[in-house]
Amino acid sequence: MDLKPDPMGETMNFLRNSVVALTAFAATPMLADVTLYSGRGETLVAPIIERFTAETGINVNVRYGGTAELAILLEEEGDRSPADLFWAQDAAALGVIKPLFAEMPDETLERVDSVYRDADGRWIGISGRSRAVIYSPERVEEGELPATLADLTDERFTGRMALAPTNGSFIAHVAALREATSDEYALEWLQGLAAIEPVIVSNNTAGYQAIADGEADIMLTNNYYLGRFLASDPDFPVAQTTFEAGDIGNLMMVAGIGVLESSENKDDAVAFVDFLLGQTAQQYFTGNVYEFPVTGEGIVPVQGRGLTYQQATDAAPEFDLNLIVDMEGTLELIRESGLL
Protein backbone atom coordinates (compact mmCIF):
# COMPACT_ATOMS: atom_id res chain seq x y z
CA MET A 1 0.00 0.00 0.00
CA ASP A 2 1.18 3.53 -0.75
CA LEU A 3 1.78 5.27 2.55
CA LYS A 4 2.70 8.68 1.12
CA PRO A 5 0.14 11.33 2.05
CA ASP A 6 -1.87 12.24 -1.02
CA PRO A 7 -4.67 14.59 -0.01
CA MET A 8 -5.83 15.19 -3.58
CA GLY A 9 -6.11 11.47 -4.37
CA GLU A 10 -7.99 10.88 -1.14
CA THR A 11 -10.47 13.60 -1.97
CA MET A 12 -11.04 12.16 -5.41
CA ASN A 13 -11.52 8.71 -3.94
CA PHE A 14 -14.00 10.07 -1.46
CA LEU A 15 -15.94 11.87 -4.20
CA ARG A 16 -15.97 8.82 -6.41
CA ASN A 17 -17.12 6.57 -3.58
CA SER A 18 -19.84 9.02 -2.64
CA VAL A 19 -21.15 9.14 -6.16
CA VAL A 20 -21.15 5.37 -6.39
CA ALA A 21 -22.88 5.14 -3.03
CA LEU A 22 -25.49 7.70 -4.03
CA THR A 23 -26.30 5.97 -7.30
CA ALA A 24 -26.58 2.67 -5.48
CA PHE A 25 -28.86 4.31 -2.96
CA ALA A 26 -31.00 5.85 -5.68
CA ALA A 27 -31.41 2.43 -7.25
CA THR A 28 -32.41 0.56 -4.10
CA PRO A 29 -35.77 2.08 -3.15
CA MET A 30 -37.31 -0.07 -5.88
CA LEU A 31 -36.38 -3.15 -3.89
CA ALA A 32 -38.62 -3.69 -0.90
CA ASP A 33 -37.22 -5.23 2.27
CA VAL A 34 -38.74 -7.88 4.45
CA THR A 35 -37.87 -8.38 8.10
CA LEU A 36 -37.47 -11.95 9.31
CA TYR A 37 -37.24 -13.11 12.94
CA SER A 38 -35.32 -16.37 12.66
CA GLY A 39 -35.15 -18.94 15.42
CA ARG A 40 -33.10 -21.03 13.03
CA GLY A 41 -29.34 -20.64 13.12
CA GLU A 42 -27.51 -18.34 10.74
CA THR A 43 -25.08 -20.92 9.33
CA LEU A 44 -27.95 -23.08 8.18
CA VAL A 45 -30.33 -20.53 6.73
CA ALA A 46 -28.18 -17.59 5.59
CA PRO A 47 -27.07 -19.33 2.34
CA ILE A 48 -30.64 -19.95 1.26
CA ILE A 49 -31.71 -16.41 2.20
CA GLU A 50 -28.87 -14.99 0.07
CA ARG A 51 -30.03 -17.14 -2.80
CA PHE A 52 -33.56 -15.73 -2.43
CA THR A 53 -32.27 -12.14 -2.53
CA ALA A 54 -30.14 -12.91 -5.57
CA GLU A 55 -33.12 -14.37 -7.44
CA THR A 56 -35.84 -11.88 -6.48
CA GLY A 57 -34.00 -8.70 -5.52
CA ILE A 58 -35.94 -8.66 -2.25
CA ASN A 59 -33.68 -7.86 0.68
CA VAL A 60 -34.19 -9.81 3.90
CA ASN A 61 -33.27 -8.20 7.25
CA VAL A 62 -32.77 -11.03 9.66
CA ARG A 63 -32.95 -11.00 13.45
CA TYR A 64 -31.41 -14.25 14.69
CA GLY A 65 -32.25 -15.50 18.17
CA GLY A 66 -33.59 -18.40 20.16
CA THR A 67 -37.00 -19.59 18.89
CA ALA A 68 -38.56 -19.23 22.35
CA GLU A 69 -37.07 -15.79 22.99
CA LEU A 70 -38.28 -14.52 19.61
CA ALA A 71 -41.76 -15.98 20.22
CA ILE A 72 -41.98 -14.14 23.54
CA LEU A 73 -40.71 -11.00 21.84
CA LEU A 74 -43.45 -11.26 19.19
CA GLU A 75 -46.08 -11.74 21.89
CA GLU A 76 -44.82 -8.63 23.65
CA GLU A 77 -44.67 -6.59 20.42
CA GLY A 78 -48.17 -7.64 19.35
CA ASP A 79 -49.43 -5.63 16.38
CA ARG A 80 -46.52 -3.19 16.70
CA SER A 81 -44.00 -5.76 15.55
CA PRO A 82 -41.51 -4.68 12.88
CA ALA A 83 -41.34 -8.31 11.74
CA ASP A 84 -42.95 -9.59 8.53
CA LEU A 85 -42.04 -13.24 9.08
CA PHE A 86 -41.24 -15.61 11.94
CA TRP A 87 -39.29 -18.79 11.18
CA ALA A 88 -39.36 -21.15 14.17
CA GLN A 89 -37.63 -24.38 15.12
CA ASP A 90 -40.87 -26.06 16.18
CA ALA A 91 -44.61 -26.18 15.71
CA ALA A 92 -45.26 -25.40 19.38
CA ALA A 93 -43.78 -21.91 19.07
CA LEU A 94 -45.72 -21.35 15.84
CA GLY A 95 -48.89 -22.43 17.63
CA VAL A 96 -48.29 -19.81 20.33
CA ILE A 97 -47.83 -17.04 17.75
CA LYS A 98 -50.71 -18.26 15.56
CA PRO A 99 -53.12 -15.46 16.63
CA LEU A 100 -50.61 -12.94 15.28
CA PHE A 101 -50.15 -14.65 11.91
CA ALA A 102 -52.06 -13.78 8.75
CA GLU A 103 -53.70 -16.45 6.61
CA MET A 104 -51.51 -17.62 3.77
CA PRO A 105 -52.74 -17.95 0.17
CA ASP A 106 -54.14 -21.35 -0.81
CA GLU A 107 -51.59 -21.85 -3.62
CA THR A 108 -48.82 -21.71 -1.01
CA LEU A 109 -50.59 -23.88 1.53
CA GLU A 110 -51.47 -26.60 -0.97
CA ARG A 111 -47.83 -27.34 -1.67
CA VAL A 112 -47.48 -28.98 1.73
CA ASP A 113 -49.30 -31.99 3.19
CA SER A 114 -52.03 -30.75 5.55
CA VAL A 115 -50.52 -32.49 8.59
CA TYR A 116 -47.43 -30.29 8.31
CA ARG A 117 -49.26 -26.98 8.42
CA ASP A 118 -51.76 -25.06 10.53
CA ALA A 119 -55.38 -26.11 9.99
CA ASP A 120 -56.37 -22.44 9.54
CA GLY A 121 -53.51 -21.78 7.14
CA ARG A 122 -51.63 -19.37 9.39
CA TRP A 123 -48.30 -21.16 9.45
CA ILE A 124 -46.65 -23.74 7.27
CA GLY A 125 -43.93 -26.36 7.72
CA ILE A 126 -40.69 -25.70 5.80
CA SER A 127 -38.56 -28.69 6.69
CA GLY A 128 -39.31 -31.97 8.45
CA ARG A 129 -37.41 -33.59 11.27
CA SER A 130 -38.30 -36.84 12.89
CA ARG A 131 -38.04 -38.01 16.44
CA ALA A 132 -35.59 -40.89 16.49
CA VAL A 133 -33.78 -43.25 18.81
CA ILE A 134 -30.03 -42.77 18.99
CA TYR A 135 -27.79 -45.31 20.70
CA SER A 136 -24.27 -46.52 21.14
CA PRO A 137 -23.67 -49.39 18.70
CA GLU A 138 -20.95 -50.67 21.06
CA ARG A 139 -23.10 -50.91 24.17
CA VAL A 140 -26.60 -51.58 22.85
CA GLU A 141 -27.31 -54.89 21.13
CA GLU A 142 -29.60 -54.97 18.11
CA GLY A 143 -32.15 -57.10 19.99
CA GLU A 144 -32.19 -54.72 22.93
CA LEU A 145 -33.50 -51.73 20.96
CA PRO A 146 -36.96 -50.54 22.02
CA ALA A 147 -39.82 -51.52 19.73
CA THR A 148 -42.19 -48.76 20.83
CA LEU A 149 -42.16 -45.53 22.79
CA ALA A 150 -43.73 -47.46 25.69
CA ASP A 151 -40.85 -49.95 25.59
CA LEU A 152 -38.42 -47.12 26.30
CA THR A 153 -39.39 -47.14 29.99
CA ASP A 154 -38.38 -50.81 30.36
CA GLU A 155 -36.08 -51.76 33.26
CA ARG A 156 -33.30 -52.77 30.88
CA PHE A 157 -32.61 -49.10 30.23
CA THR A 158 -32.31 -48.19 33.92
CA GLY A 159 -29.54 -45.61 34.31
CA ARG A 160 -28.63 -45.96 30.63
CA MET A 161 -30.92 -43.43 28.98
CA ALA A 162 -30.13 -39.78 28.35
CA LEU A 163 -33.08 -37.38 28.54
CA ALA A 164 -33.46 -33.65 27.85
CA PRO A 165 -36.75 -32.85 29.65
CA THR A 166 -36.46 -29.11 29.00
CA ASN A 167 -35.95 -29.48 25.26
CA GLY A 168 -38.74 -28.00 23.15
CA SER A 169 -39.04 -31.05 20.90
CA PHE A 170 -39.33 -33.37 23.88
CA ILE A 171 -42.08 -31.25 25.42
CA ALA A 172 -43.88 -31.06 22.06
CA HIS A 173 -43.54 -34.83 21.73
CA VAL A 174 -45.17 -35.31 25.15
CA ALA A 175 -47.94 -32.92 24.09
CA ALA A 176 -48.48 -35.12 21.01
CA LEU A 177 -48.49 -38.25 23.18
CA ARG A 178 -51.25 -36.72 25.34
CA GLU A 179 -53.34 -36.13 22.22
CA ALA A 180 -52.62 -39.56 20.72
CA THR A 181 -53.41 -41.36 23.99
CA SER A 182 -54.60 -39.62 27.14
CA ASP A 183 -53.23 -37.41 29.92
CA GLU A 184 -53.26 -40.40 32.28
CA TYR A 185 -51.25 -42.50 29.85
CA ALA A 186 -48.77 -39.70 29.17
CA LEU A 187 -48.25 -39.18 32.90
CA GLU A 188 -47.73 -42.90 33.43
CA TRP A 189 -45.16 -42.95 30.62
CA LEU A 190 -43.34 -39.94 32.10
CA GLN A 191 -43.33 -41.56 35.53
CA GLY A 192 -41.96 -44.69 33.90
CA LEU A 193 -39.12 -42.59 32.46
CA ALA A 194 -38.44 -41.02 35.84
CA ALA A 195 -38.37 -44.52 37.40
CA ILE A 196 -35.53 -45.75 35.18
CA GLU A 197 -33.40 -42.84 36.46
CA PRO A 198 -32.40 -41.20 33.19
CA VAL A 199 -29.20 -39.19 32.81
CA ILE A 200 -30.63 -35.67 32.56
CA VAL A 201 -28.97 -33.56 29.87
CA SER A 202 -29.55 -29.90 29.01
CA ASN A 203 -30.31 -30.32 25.30
CA ASN A 204 -30.16 -32.68 22.34
CA THR A 205 -26.53 -31.91 21.48
CA ALA A 206 -25.52 -32.71 25.05
CA GLY A 207 -27.41 -36.00 24.72
CA TYR A 208 -25.47 -37.01 21.59
CA GLN A 209 -22.30 -36.03 23.43
CA ALA A 210 -23.30 -38.07 26.49
CA ILE A 211 -23.73 -41.21 24.39
CA ALA A 212 -20.44 -40.61 22.59
CA ASP A 213 -18.81 -40.11 26.00
CA GLY A 214 -20.18 -43.37 27.36
CA GLU A 215 -22.31 -41.72 30.02
CA ALA A 216 -25.53 -42.98 28.48
CA ASP A 217 -26.36 -45.65 25.93
CA ILE A 218 -29.63 -44.54 24.37
CA MET A 219 -31.81 -41.46 23.87
CA LEU A 220 -35.01 -40.26 22.23
CA THR A 221 -34.13 -37.14 20.25
CA ASN A 222 -34.28 -35.37 16.86
CA ASN A 223 -32.73 -37.02 13.83
CA TYR A 224 -30.79 -34.20 12.15
CA TYR A 225 -28.03 -33.63 14.71
CA LEU A 226 -26.45 -36.96 13.78
CA GLY A 227 -25.85 -35.77 10.22
CA ARG A 228 -24.08 -32.68 11.55
CA PHE A 229 -21.91 -34.65 13.97
CA LEU A 230 -21.02 -37.14 11.22
CA ALA A 231 -20.18 -34.28 8.86
CA SER A 232 -17.47 -33.03 11.23
CA ASP A 233 -16.39 -36.51 12.44
CA PRO A 234 -17.25 -39.55 10.25
CA ASP A 235 -16.34 -41.88 13.15
CA PHE A 236 -18.76 -40.28 15.61
CA PRO A 237 -19.73 -43.32 17.74
CA VAL A 238 -23.54 -42.93 17.69
CA ALA A 239 -26.14 -44.76 15.58
CA GLN A 240 -29.77 -44.00 14.81
CA THR A 241 -32.94 -46.06 14.40
CA THR A 242 -36.73 -45.80 14.56
CA PHE A 243 -39.40 -47.54 16.63
CA GLU A 244 -41.74 -49.90 14.76
CA ALA A 245 -43.67 -48.29 11.91
CA GLY A 246 -46.59 -46.10 12.92
CA ASP A 247 -45.50 -45.76 16.57
CA ILE A 248 -46.06 -42.32 18.07
CA GLY A 249 -42.37 -42.37 19.01
CA ASN A 250 -41.49 -41.78 15.34
CA LEU A 251 -43.39 -38.50 15.25
CA MET A 252 -42.50 -36.29 12.30
CA MET A 253 -42.25 -32.63 13.28
CA VAL A 254 -41.48 -29.48 11.36
CA ALA A 255 -39.61 -26.24 11.52
CA GLY A 256 -41.98 -23.72 9.99
CA ILE A 257 -42.80 -20.15 9.16
CA GLY A 258 -45.68 -17.68 9.29
CA VAL A 259 -46.41 -14.20 7.89
CA LEU A 260 -47.41 -11.67 10.53
CA GLU A 261 -50.81 -9.97 10.29
CA SER A 262 -49.16 -6.65 11.18
CA SER A 263 -46.80 -6.89 8.18
CA GLU A 264 -47.10 -4.12 5.61
CA ASN A 265 -45.27 -6.17 3.04
CA LYS A 266 -47.15 -9.46 2.93
CA ASP A 267 -46.60 -10.06 -0.80
CA ASP A 268 -42.83 -10.17 -0.49
CA ALA A 269 -43.13 -12.17 2.72
CA VAL A 270 -45.25 -14.78 0.95
CA ALA A 271 -42.78 -14.77 -1.96
CA PHE A 272 -40.12 -15.75 0.57
CA VAL A 273 -42.26 -18.62 1.90
CA ASP A 274 -42.88 -19.80 -1.68
CA PHE A 275 -39.16 -19.74 -2.34
CA LEU A 276 -38.49 -21.89 0.74
CA LEU A 277 -40.97 -24.46 -0.56
CA GLY A 278 -39.34 -24.53 -3.99
CA GLN A 279 -37.02 -27.23 -5.31
CA THR A 280 -33.76 -25.34 -4.58
CA ALA A 281 -34.50 -24.66 -0.92
CA GLN A 282 -36.05 -28.07 -0.24
CA GLN A 283 -33.01 -29.81 -1.73
CA TYR A 284 -30.78 -27.59 0.39
CA PHE A 285 -32.57 -28.55 3.62
CA THR A 286 -32.24 -32.21 2.71
CA GLY A 287 -28.68 -32.25 1.46
CA ASN A 288 -26.98 -29.63 3.62
CA VAL A 289 -29.02 -29.37 6.79
CA TYR A 290 -29.87 -33.11 7.08
CA GLU A 291 -33.57 -32.44 7.56
CA PHE A 292 -36.44 -33.71 5.41
CA PRO A 293 -38.31 -32.02 2.55
CA VAL A 294 -41.98 -31.17 3.17
CA THR A 295 -42.90 -31.03 -0.51
CA GLY A 296 -41.52 -34.49 -1.36
CA GLU A 297 -41.34 -34.56 -5.15
CA GLY A 298 -38.01 -34.70 -6.92
CA ILE A 299 -35.71 -34.30 -3.91
CA VAL A 300 -32.53 -36.39 -3.92
CA PRO A 301 -32.01 -38.02 -0.50
CA VAL A 302 -28.65 -38.06 1.32
CA GLN A 303 -27.05 -41.33 2.35
CA GLY A 304 -24.89 -42.13 5.35
CA ARG A 305 -26.15 -39.30 7.54
CA GLY A 306 -28.62 -41.18 9.73
CA LEU A 307 -32.25 -41.81 8.81
CA THR A 308 -33.30 -41.11 5.25
CA TYR A 309 -36.51 -39.30 4.35
CA GLN A 310 -37.97 -42.58 3.13
CA GLN A 311 -37.19 -44.42 6.38
CA ALA A 312 -38.59 -41.59 8.45
CA THR A 313 -41.83 -41.20 6.50
CA ASP A 314 -42.39 -44.95 6.38
CA ALA A 315 -42.09 -45.11 10.15
CA ALA A 316 -43.98 -41.90 11.01
CA PRO A 317 -47.40 -42.17 12.66
CA GLU A 318 -50.47 -40.35 11.34
CA PHE A 319 -50.57 -37.27 13.53
CA ASP A 320 -51.80 -33.73 13.01
CA LEU A 321 -49.24 -31.26 14.39
CA ASN A 322 -52.04 -28.76 14.96
CA LEU A 323 -52.94 -30.73 18.05
CA ILE A 324 -49.73 -29.63 19.79
CA VAL A 325 -51.04 -26.58 21.60
CA ASP A 326 -51.23 -26.99 25.38
CA MET A 327 -47.60 -26.39 26.40
CA GLU A 328 -48.49 -25.15 29.89
CA GLY A 329 -50.51 -28.31 30.63
CA THR A 330 -47.77 -30.50 29.19
CA LEU A 331 -45.13 -28.78 31.29
CA GLU A 332 -47.40 -29.37 34.29
CA LEU A 333 -47.51 -33.12 33.56
CA ILE A 334 -43.74 -33.31 33.17
CA ARG A 335 -43.36 -31.51 36.49
CA GLU A 336 -45.84 -33.85 38.14
CA SER A 337 -43.80 -36.85 36.99
CA GLY A 338 -40.78 -35.38 38.75
CA LEU A 339 -38.69 -35.04 35.59
CA LEU A 340 -38.66 -31.23 35.87
Binding site: G66, N204, Y225
Partner: peptide
Protein backbone atom coordinates in the same frame (compact mmCIF):
# COMPACT_ATOMS: atom_id res chain seq x y z
CA UNK B 1 -31.01 -12.52 25.78
CA UNK B 2 -31.00 -8.71 25.76
CA UNK B 3 -29.27 -8.69 22.37
CA UNK B 4 -31.88 -11.09 20.97
CA UNK B 5 -34.71 -8.75 21.87
CA UNK B 6 -33.32 -5.24 21.67
CA UNK B 7 -30.49 -5.12 19.16
CA UNK B 8 -31.19 -3.50 15.77
CA UNK B 9 -32.43 -6.07 13.24
CA UNK B 10 -29.53 -7.34 11.18
CA UNK B 11 -27.09 -6.56 13.99
CA UNK B 12 -24.66 -9.46 14.28
CA UNK B 13 -22.28 -9.22 17.24
CA UNK B 14 -19.97 -12.13 18.07
CA UNK B 15 -22.29 -13.44 20.78
CA UNK B 16 -25.26 -13.83 18.41
CA UNK B 17 -23.15 -15.33 15.61
CA UNK B 18 -21.78 -17.80 18.12
CA UNK B 19 -25.25 -18.69 19.37
CA UNK B 20 -26.54 -19.16 15.82
CA UNK B 21 -24.12 -22.06 15.57
CA UNK B 22 -24.35 -23.66 19.01
CA UNK B 23 -28.16 -23.61 18.85
CA UNK B 24 -28.01 -25.98 15.89
CA UNK B 25 -25.50 -28.23 17.60
CA UNK B 26 -22.56 -26.98 15.51
CA UNK B 27 -19.95 -26.63 18.24
CA UNK B 28 -17.02 -26.85 15.87
Amino acid sequence: PIAFLLSPTGFRPLSITMFSRTSEGMLV
